[in-house]
């Protein structure tokens, strides 16, 4: 990296939480919960044109046990909600959640018997992304917001939400 030329065999002094947060925020492994058109924008965000890997979170994990960032992108119906809850419970701590788009955040235009009016009623959401669907830039902004949240956490905080 060239860093060893400057530092040599020296020692760096830092706080543990700063080091851990630095590692966590730059290696977010998202669990995509894509159920609608927002998922298409999420795929665009991951692909080469927008390239979410520039921000260290390109390793999409389809197993919740290997992921620490859930991106709920799309409508959640009453039949899907138990699945979403189970997958969120399967994700190990620490974990964060992005509610992407109008439907996941508030139900959107679908104010009907079958659609959950915002997933934040049942799982803790850290960042909401407005839009229908949001542009890839918005999702990248959401991930950057998550990174800000991660950078302020303490190492002693082990549980999520209140």
């Amino acid at each position: 990296m060239g860093l060893e030329k400057i530092l040599g065999d020296g020692v760096l002094a830092t706080r543990v939480s700063a080091l851990v947060n630095w590692a966590r925020q730059n290696a977010l492994w998202p669990m995509p919960f894509g159920t609608a058109c927002c998922a298409i924008e999420m795929m665009a965000t991951l692909s080469s044109r927008f390239d979410m890997s520039r921000f260290g979170s390109e390793v999409i994990r389809f197993s919740p046990r290997q992921a620490d960032l859930m991106i709920v992108s799309g409508r959640i119906s009453i039949k899907m909600m138990p699945v979403l809850l189970k997958i969120w419970e399967q994700m190990p701590e620490p974990k964060w959640c992005i509610s992407m788009g109008a439907c996941a955040s508030s139900g959107g235009v679908f104010d009907t018997y079958t659609l959950i009016q915002g997933v934040d009623q049942f799982i803790p959401v850290d960042v909401y992304i407005p839009g229908c669907p949001p542009r890839p830039e918005n999702l990248i902004d959401g991930v950057r917001k998550i990174q800000e949240i991660v950078s302020k956490e303490k190492i002693s905080d082990t549980k999520h939400g209140s």
Binding site: I78, M81, P82, L85, W88, E89, D111, T112, Y113, T114, L115, I116, Q117, Q121, F122, I123, P124, K159, H160, G161
Partner: peptide, 18 residues
């Protein structure tokens, strides 16, 4: 005659607790 917004089905889920 079924209400458009349902009979509360969309809010009868357990909240995630730690």
């Amino acid at each position: 005659d079924y209400p458009l917004k349902g009979r509360g089905e969309r809010s009868n889920f357990p909240k995630y607790t730690v």
